[in-house]
Amino acid sequence: PDDLEKRARELLKRGKNPDEIREYLRNAGYDQSQAEEALKRAL
């Protein structure tokens, strides 16, 4: 898994919901489609 996916998994483990994770990834400078893909793979 790429770093983005790892980060998404990490956040899920900490109890973040998908919307929070999307926002976090966007704020971290990733584009929307990258964030969506990583989140899908992590779920």
Rank of each mutant, 00 (worst) to 15 (best):
L25V: 01
K16Q: 09
P18S: 06
E36I: 04
R41S: 08
P1N: 12
E5G: 06
R41Q: 09
E10T: 05
L39W: 01
R7S: 09
L43C: 06
R22P: 01
P18M: 08
K13D: 11
K40F: 12
A38R: 01
Y30C: 07
E20R: 03
A42E: 02
E20Q: 12
L39E: 01
R22L: 15
D19S: 09
G29V: 01
D31R: 04
G29R: 02
G29W: 01
N27M: 13
L11A: 04
E37W: 08
P18E: 09
R41F: 05
R7P: 03
K16Y: 15
R9N: 05
K13S: 10
A28L: 15
E20K: 03
R14T: 12
E37I: 08
K16F: 15
K16E: 05
K40L: 13
S33V: 14
D3M: 10
L4Q: 03
E10R: 05
D3F: 12
E37R: 06
K6Y: 12
L25E: 00
L39K: 00
Q32K: 10
P1W: 14
P18Y: 09
L43P: 01
R41Y: 06
R9L: 13
E10D: 11
G29T: 02
D3S: 10
D19R: 07
K13N: 11
G15R: 02
L4E: 02
I21K: 00
Q34M: 12
N27V: 11
E36D: 11
D2W: 12
S33D: 14
K40P: 00
Q32N: 11
K16G: 04
R9V: 09
A38W: 09
A38M: 06
K40H: 12
D3N: 09
Y24Q: 08
P1L: 15
D3Y: 13
Q32V: 14
K16R: 10
Q32R: 11
A8W: 03
D2N: 11
A8K: 00
A38Q: 01
L4F: 04
Y30A: 13
L25I: 04
A42T: 04
Y30R: 01
K16C: 07
Y30N: 02
R26N: 06
E10F: 05
A42P: 02
E20H: 04
K16S: 08
L43H: 04
N27G: 09
L12P: 00
S33W: 14
L4R: 03
I21R: 00
Y24F: 14
E10V: 05
R9I: 11
A35I: 15
L39R: 00
E37M: 09
K16V: 12
K40V: 10
K13V: 07
D31M: 06
D3R: 06
D19H: 09
R7W: 15
N27D: 11
L12G: 01
A38Y: 04
S33F: 14
L11M: 14
D2V: 11
G15M: 03
R26K: 13
Y24S: 07
A42C: 05
R7A: 14
P1T: 13
R7G: 04
L11V: 01
D19W: 09
L43K: 04
E20S: 04
A42I: 15
L43M: 13
E10Y: 07
R9T: 08
L4T: 05
K40W: 14
R9E: 06
A38P: 00
D31F: 03
E36A: 05
R9K: 10
G15W: 02
A42F: 08
A8V: 15
A42V: 14
R9A: 10
A8E: 00
L11K: 01
E36Q: 05
L25Y: 04
G29Y: 02
L25Q: 00
I21M: 01
A8Y: 02
N17Q: 11
A35F: 10
R14A: 15
D31H: 07
S33G: 13
E5W: 15
K13I: 09
L12V: 06
K13T: 06
R41H: 09
R26A: 11
D2L: 11
L4P: 11
E10H: 05
E37N: 08
P1S: 12
R22Y: 14
E10L: 07
E10P: 00
P1V: 14
N17A: 11
L39G: 01
E36S: 04
L4Y: 05
I21S: 00
D31P: 12
L4S: 06
P1K: 11
Y30I: 09
R41E: 04
L11F: 05
E10N: 05
E23H: 07
P1E: 12
L25W: 05
Q34N: 07
K6R: 13
Y24T: 09
L12R: 03
A28N: 09
I21H: 00
P18L: 11
E36L: 05
P18F: 09
A8I: 15
R9M: 10
I21T: 02
D31T: 15
G15P: 00
L11G: 02
E36G: 03
A28S: 08
A28E: 14
K40Q: 14
L12T: 02
G29H: 02
K40T: 10
P1Y: 13
D2S: 11
A28W: 11
K6D: 11
N27P: 00
E23A: 10
G15D: 02
E36H: 04
L4W: 05
K16M: 15
G29I: 01
L11I: 02
L12E: 01
A8Q: 00
D19I: 07
R14G: 13
L43D: 03
R9G: 06
N17V: 06
Y30V: 10
R41K: 13
E36C: 03
L25D: 00
G29K: 02
L12H: 04
P18K: 06
R26G: 04
A38D: 01
R9Y: 09
E23R: 07
N17R: 11
A35T: 12
Y30T: 03
Q34W: 08
R9P: 00
K40R: 14
S33N: 13
R9F: 08
Q32G: 10
L43V: 07
D2I: 11
R7Y: 15
E5V: 15
E10W: 09
P18R: 07
N27I: 12
L12F: 06
L4G: 07
D3T: 09
R9W: 09
R9S: 08
I21Y: 01
L25F: 15
K6I: 12
A28Y: 07
P18V: 10
R41G: 07
N17E: 08
D2Q: 11
A42Y: 04
E5Y: 15
K6M: 13
Q34G: 05
R26I: 15
A28P: 01
N17P: 07
Y24G: 03
Q34E: 14
R41D: 04
D3K: 07
Y30K: 02
N27T: 10
I21Q: 00
G29L: 02
L39H: 01
R22I: 15
K6N: 11
K13F: 06
N27E: 13
L12K: 03
K40D: 10
L25H: 01
L11P: 00
K40E: 11
D19M: 08
L43S: 05
P1I: 15
L39M: 05
R26L: 15
A35E: 01
I21D: 00
N27R: 13
Y24L: 14
Y24N: 05
Y30Q: 02
Q34Y: 07
A8D: 00
D3A: 10
A42G: 03
A35W: 06
A42M: 11
D31G: 10
R26F: 10
D19Y: 06
Y30M: 08
K40S: 10
A28I: 09
A8G: 01
R41N: 09
A28G: 06
A38F: 09
S33A: 14
Q34P: 03
A38E: 02
E23I: 09
E5H: 12
R9D: 04
Q32D: 14
D19E: 11
P1M: 15
S33I: 14
A8L: 15
R14W: 11
L11D: 03
L43W: 05
R14F: 10
L12I: 08
E10A: 09
S33P: 08
R41V: 07
E23M: 08
A28F: 08
N27Q: 14
E20F: 10
D31A: 09
D3L: 10
N17L: 12
D31W: 03
K13P: 00
E20A: 06
A8R: 00
A38T: 06
D2G: 10
R26Q: 10
A28K: 08
R26P: 00
D3C: 07
K13Y: 07
N27Y: 07
K6P: 03
L4D: 02
G29D: 01
K16D: 06
R26T: 11
Q32E: 14
Y24V: 12
P1Q: 11
G15Y: 03
L25K: 00
D31K: 06
Q34F: 06
E23Y: 05
G29A: 02
Q34D: 12
E37S: 07
K40M: 13
K16P: 00
L11Q: 04
Q34S: 09
K40Y: 13
R26S: 07
K6H: 12
N27W: 09
R14Y: 10
E37G: 05
E37D: 11
E10S: 05
Q32L: 12
E20L: 04
A42Q: 02
